[in-house]
């Protein structure tokens, strides 16, 4: 059902070494519009490295990626360019600027301007209310206070809200619920299901296998730097998946 559609993203045998450490040896995957793809693997397997390459934060040593059938040339492989293509990432542990407001965090890197140099506060606040309402996140805090005064779930919702607001093609979430409680996790999962409805593709990295089974259509296992196995969700059991994660 998913595979015949023209892939929105193709990753072809990318690799990345840091000094002597081969963080990623051979990462390959395909992603279709509207699909939720889970990337699973042990700690240090290379999952974050793989998505940082997709996001343009890291350039691969070998291999390349193409988005919407267009191969990304080496000189275009930057965060700015990839973001322009409609790809947004919520990074593990590194999603927000704590001392800034929720609206600022929502507009990170895209602050709307008035007269070229001034911040358009009003527009930012309006858009933030819209996004919060869309994600059904209720806040009592003033939008003028630092986001660090909000709960972890609210902070993460803003980070995900940013990804959804601008990630028209692909939203990548690196362990989005790792730091959250049960209620907040549920809220984030509902948001992920909303993304699917918009025909935006999602890549979800998670160590929570129950969650992976709840959300993903397809799963890719990363083992010691290789995208070693791939499963359709309804064609694999948890035990088989655990085995693939631990032994490749």
């Amino acid at each position: 059902m998913n595979s015949p559609a023209k892939p929105i993203l193709e990753v072809n045998s990318v690799s990345k070494a840091f000094g002597g450490v081969e963080a990623l040896r051979d990462g390959s995957l395909k992603l279709s519009p509207g699909e939720v793809l889970a990337i699973v693997g042990a700690n240090g397997a290379g999952k974050s490295t793989l998505i940082k390459i997709i996001a343009g934060v890291l350039t691969p040593d070998r291999g390349d990626i193409s988005i919407k059938g267009k191969s990304i040339a080496r000189q275009d492989h930057t965060v700015g360019f990839i973001r322009q293509m409609g790809v947004e990432v919520v990074y593990q542990d590194l999603a927000i600027v704590p001392n800034m407001t929720a609206p600022y965090n929502l507009f990170l890197g895209r602050v709307p301007r008035k007269f070229g140099i001034f911040v358009d506060e009003k527009k930012m606040q309006e858009k933030t209310r819209e996004v919060l309402a869309e994600l059904k996140v209720e806040t009592v805090q003033s939008l003028k206070r630092p986001i660090s005064e909000m709960s972890g779930g609210q902070q993460q919702s803003i980070a995900i809200g940013r990804a959804i607001a601008w990630g028209k093609e692909i939203v990548i979430l690196d362990e989005p619920t790792a730091a959250l409680g049960p209620n907040e996790t549920q809220q984030v999962e509902r948001v992920i299901n909303e993304i699917r409805k918009r025909n935006t593709a999602t890549i979800l990295i998670s160590h929570n296998l129950d969650q992976v089974f709840r959300l993903a259509d397809r799963l890719v296992v990363v083992h010691q730097g290789n995208t070693s196995k791939e499963f359709m969700r309804n064609e694999v059991t948890i035990d088989e998946l655990v085995k693939a994660i631990t032994t490749g």
Partner: peptide, 18 residues
């Protein structure tokens, strides 16, 4: 605004391509 953001979390700013 960016002055304060840079003081708040430089890594996040880098990851967003600033």
């Amino acid at each position: 605004q960016q002055l304060k953001a840079l003081g708040g979390n430089e890594k996040v700013l880098r990851l967003t391509g600033i």
